[in-house]
Design a protein around this nucleic acid. Structure first.
Lengths: 151, 151
DNA sequence: CCTATTTCAGGGGTACTGACATCG
DNA sequence: CCGATGTCAGTAACCCTGAAATAG
């Protein structure tokens, strides 16, 4: 308990507030590492790398992003030559989004930056503690994403 | 591990992303409980209740909010009669912000809403697990807020 | 008909930046 | 002169809504 932290105990103890504060630190640290990329850009590229070329709607479901935000992210990435949009032959509503070789290389770089950001963020925790935190957060997420998913 | 969650493992395992996702759920749940109040409003009122009347700059340090956001929050609360701004006699740059009796009553209501939101958010965790999660997050926050504080 | 996909326009809450005048 | 305070204007990233056009 730092003696020079003026935050009232009442606020500091609220778990949802701890989450929000920690997420703010996480965002600041990750954004610094990603430089001129946004977390949306990284998420879309990582999903494409793992799932292969797919539609924008599928990307939105995988990244848990709104469809309209996918449009913007794919626009940005396509303008930088990191992904390509091509029409889907079997379903003409869809675009198929694919990672380019340049995108693949950039993703490897961003993967490393994200990994470094985790170390910055969780520096005070041991590997066991980090795993435990991840496990607890995973349980919370699984519970709520399952609730949302069944609407 | 839900079989119908399309999120790639690579993304789901990133701890900073878990934090961001959990914070998003937290915000949604808390905002629903707070109804027509924002988290900023609650934080300012709770800080005033715990620290007593104080300047806006002090409120910003306690709530870890920017001074400009304090202005807006105090504007809103004053317009609803929940706080009052009065000039500081000893330092004419400052306003002294105080919680009114109406603000005190509303705060008690909001405290209960926030408490209910914690149960919604952390439903899948046992009391011991919630305490452990709070402890781990507290360590991370202490580390980073201490870093920021020493600038 | 009804649903799904892409796209656009826009809003809302949070975090932050720069500037300014005032005052200690 | 320097720094702190309150205020205002504005930005940025993220999350979300509604609506349109197109297509299964």
């Amino acid at each position: 308990m730092p003696i020079d932290d003026p935050t009232p105990e009442r606020l500091r103890r609220i778990p949802s507030r701890q989450l929000t504060q920690a997420a703010a630190h996480a965002h600041r640290i990750v954004a610094h590492r990603l430089a001129d990329f946004r977390t949306h850009h990284y998420a879309v590229m990582a999903a494409l790398d793992e799932a292969g070329p797919c539609s924008q709607a599928a990307l939105g479901r995988m990244c848990r992003m709104d469809r309209s935000d996918i449009v913007t992210a794919v626009d940005d990435l396509a303008a930088r030559g990191l992904v390509v949009r091509s029409p889907d032959e079997t379903d003409r509503r869809r675009n198929t989004v694919s990672l380019t070789p340049e995108g693949s290389g950039m993703l490897r770089h961003l993967d490393e930056q994200v990994r470094l950001a985790q170390d910055d963020l969780f520096e005070p925790l041991s590997p066991e503690e980090r795993a435990h935190l991840a496990s607890l957060l995973g349980r919370v997420l699984e519970y709520h994403t399952h609730l949302d998913g069944t609407h």
